[in-house]
Computed example of a mutant assay.
Amino acid sequence: MATNRSRRLRKKLCVDEFQELGCELTLNFREGLADAEMDSFVEAFLRDAVEGNGLGYVGGDDYGFVCLAKRGSMSAAQREQLDAWLKSRAELTGYSLSPLMDVWYPENAVNPA
């Protein structure tokens, strides 16, 4: 595809100035965690950490992708809030939160702001 694209096409493809950012999340749960505790954690995670910060989550119980709930990019501040929320949870033995990356084209570098 040509690299000299119109503004309309760049927006439709979510490239260049329309690049959208999010991050990958991997959760490691505490050994022996009851199903009810895990369900409670997932509900709190989705309600407080994700929806409470205007974000969306796609994935399963232990791995997924977090991005802005509407069109646009997750900010570094939102990523830090998510990180702080995860650090405070006793249900987790650890987690991995990737740096901000392109939602649509993960292999592409993040454009400078």
Rank of each mutant, 00 (worst) to 15 (best):
G54V: 06
A2D: 06
Q81N: 15
Q78V: 03
G59C: 09
R89W: 08
G22I: 11
A49P: 00
V58D: 03
R5G: 00
A44V: 05
F45L: 02
G94C: 03
M101P: 00
G59K: 05
T93W: 08
R30F: 02
T93V: 14
M74R: 05
L100V: 13
T93A: 09
E51T: 14
M74W: 02
D16C: 08
Y57Q: 02
E80W: 05
G72A: 07
A76R: 15
T93S: 10
C23W: 04
C23Q: 06
V50Y: 04
S98F: 01
G59N: 03
L100P: 03
C67G: 11
K11V: 03
A34K: 15
P106E: 00
K11L: 02
D16M: 06
L9G: 00
R5L: 07
G94E: 07
C67L: 08
V50W: 02
A77P: 00
P99Y: 11
C67I: 02
N28G: 00
L92Y: 10
G94N: 10
K11N: 06
C67R: 15
M1T: 04
V110P: 02
V66W: 07
K70G: 08
F45Q: 03
S6Q: 00
L100S: 10
M38A: 14
E91H: 14
G22D: 08
N108I: 04
Y105F: 14
K12L: 11
M1G: 03
R79G: 04
Y95F: 15
Y57I: 06
R30E: 12
D16P: 01
Q78N: 09
A113Q: 05
K12W: 05
E31W: 09
M74E: 05
D48H: 08
L55M: 07
V66L: 03
T3A: 04
N111R: 15
S6L: 01
R47V: 07
G32T: 11
C23I: 11
F41W: 11
A84P: 00
D35C: 04
N4I: 02
A109V: 09
V15R: 14
D61P: 07
A109Q: 12
Q19E: 13
S6M: 00
E51N: 13
A36I: 13
P99Q: 12
R89T: 10
F45G: 01
E51G: 05
D83E: 12
K87R: 15
L82A: 07
C67H: 15
D61N: 09
L25A: 08
Y57D: 05
G60L: 01
G72Q: 08
L97N: 05
Y95L: 05
Y63D: 10
C23N: 10
